[in-house]
Design a protein around this nucleic acid. Structure first.
Ligand SMILES: [Mn+2]
Ligand SMILES: [Mn+2]
Ligand SMILES: [Mn+2]
Ligand SMILES: [Mn+2]
Lengths: 216, 216
DNA sequence: TAATAAATTTAGATAAGTCTAAATTTATTA
DNA sequence: TAATAAATTTAGACTTATCTAAATTTATTA
C-alpha cells in the first residue's frame, strides 16, 4: 500500500498539525531527522497520491484519506505500546522505539484482534488516546501542571515530553498516569511547584510542570 | 544491523540448506520470487559481510554468524505465529504472511519476553520447532505418512507443505497437529491411503500423505 | 521599499535492491 | 570431446529515498 517512509511522513504531518494549521518543510525535516530537500521530494510524492494538500513554499495539510492512514498508524503504535507494557511488562520509557517498528505491520485484522485481546484499551501507557477501529477517539481535557493555581488538584493523565529521560524521572518520583496530585505552593523566583501526593510532598521544576498533564 | 532483504536471503539460504549441501542461485531466485541476477548481487553483499561462503558458479553455504542470524529470524517467525494462533485466535493457515513481517521486528528483548509470556512453546502452529534464545532446538523424528506401512500408527506432528490450500484441507479433515492416525490400507493403483482416526475413517491421496508428517 | 536573511525548491549524485539482455561458465549429450 | 543446453554472472538501467550545493521564493528589517 504505502511505503514505510510514506507512513512516517504522514504520521509526522499529523502530529505537527495538532499545533499548527499548516505544516512546513523545515518542521518535518527536524522531526524526521532529515533534510528539507528530502522532505520536498516526499511531499511531491504524497501530493501526487492525494494524501496531502501541498502548495510549494506554503506547507502541507493532510487530506481526508491521508489523515485516515495517519490515525491508523497511530492506533497501531499505541496499541503495541499498550501490549508491550501490559502483557510483556516493559516500562513506559522502553516501548516507543519498538512501537515505531511495529506500527508498520500491515494487517488491520491483526491490530483489531490485538485490540480485542487487550480489552479495547482507551489510552496508551503515556496517556495518549488510542483510536478505535473506525479511527475515532476522544482526548480528555488536559492541562499542564504549570497552568493551574495553588490548591488545585488533579489526576496525572498524560505527558507532553515522551523522552526516555523525562519518563524515567517521572517514574522515579512516582508521578505516573492515574496518580492524584495537589499543587500546594508555587515558588515565585523560578516557578517551581510543590506538589502534595498521596504519601509525600515533592518539588518539581517549571520544565517538568510544563510537560506533565493533568485533568482537573 | 541487517536490512530486511538481507534477512530474507539468509533465512531462505537456511531453509534450502536443510535439503541440499550447497544452495544455488536459481534455488534462491525461485524461493524469493526474484531473478537470478538479483540473487547474485545480494550474494556478493552477504559474502562481503562474511555471512555466507560464496564461490561464484558453485553456490553458497551459511557461515556460523550467518546461520545464527537466520535461526534468530526463524525463532521470531515461529514465536509470532504461535502468538497469533494461541493469543489472537487466528487459524494456522492465516498466520504465515503476518509473521513474515513480524519476524523483522529487531528487538531480541521483545522476542524473549514474548517467549516467556507464552510459556516457552517448543513448536509453532505447524509443528515446526521454535529455537530458544540461544538458537537451540530439537526436531523430532518425523516421517511422511506416505512412508509408513499398513497398520502403523502415529501422531501428526508437522507438515511439509505450508500453503493455505493444504492447511485448510487438513483442518477440514481434522488432520491437525496432535491427532492420532493409523494407516489401515494403501490403494495400490494410486498409492492413496486409508487412515483410521479417532472418530472416523478417511482416504487421502499420495500427495497429501507425502506432505503430512507423523511421529511413530 | 530595497537589501538581507530565512525557508524552500531544484539540480545532480549516491546507495540499496531490483530488472532485462548479453556474456560467461559449467553441465549434458551426441 | 565438441556442440549444445542450462546455470550463473556481468553490464547497464530503473526506482526509492536519501544527500549536498546552488537557485529561487518568501519574510524580515534597515
Ligand atoms: Mn510512542
Ligand atoms: Mn505513547
Ligand atoms: Mn510461517
Ligand atoms: Mn510455521
Amino acid at each position: 500500500m504505502n511505503t514505510l517512509a510514506e507512513e512516517n511522513y504522514l504520521k509526522s504531518i499529523y502530529h505537527l498539525s495538532l499545533n499548527t494549521e499548516s505544516v512546513s518543510t523545515n518542521q518535518l525535516a527536524a522531526l524526521l531527522n532529515t533534510k528539507a530537500s528530502s522532505v520536498t521530494d516526499m511531499l511531491k510524492k504524497l501530493a501526487e497520491k492525494e494524501l496531502i494538500n501541498y502548495i510549494p513554499y506554503q506547507g502541507v495539510t493532510l487530506t481526508a484519506s491521508g489523515e485516515k492512514i495517519a490515525v491508523n498508524i497511530i492506533r497501531k503504535h499505541r496499541l503495541w505500546e499498550f501490549f508491550l507494557v501490559e502483557k510483556l511488562s516493559f516500562k513506559w520509557d522502553e516501548v516507543h522505539e519498538m512501537a515505531e517498528e511495529m506500527e508498520h505491520i500491515s494487517s488491520n485484522e491483526l491490530i483489531d484482534r490485538l485490540d480485542k485481546f487487550m480489552g479495547y484499551p482507551k489510552y496508551d501507557p503515556h496517556g495518549d488516546p488510542i483510536p478505535d477501529c473506525e479511527g475515532k477517539f476522544k482526548t480528555h481535557d488536559l492541562k499542564p501542571v504549570s497552568a493551574v493555581n495553588i490548591n488545585t488538584d488533579g489526576i496525572i493523565c498524560g505527558v507532553r515530553d515522551h523522552s526516555v529521560a523525562f519518563l524515567q524521572y517521572l517514574e522515579k518520583q512516582e508521578l505516573t498516569i492515574g496518580k492524584k496530585i495537589t499543587v500546594t505552593d508555587i515558588i515565585e523566583f523560578d516557578h517551581s511547584m510543590i506538589l502534595q501526593m498521596e504519601n509525600k510532598t515533592i518539588q518539581i521544576s517549571r520544565e517538568v510542570a510544563n510537560s506533565l498533564l493533568i485533568t482537573l
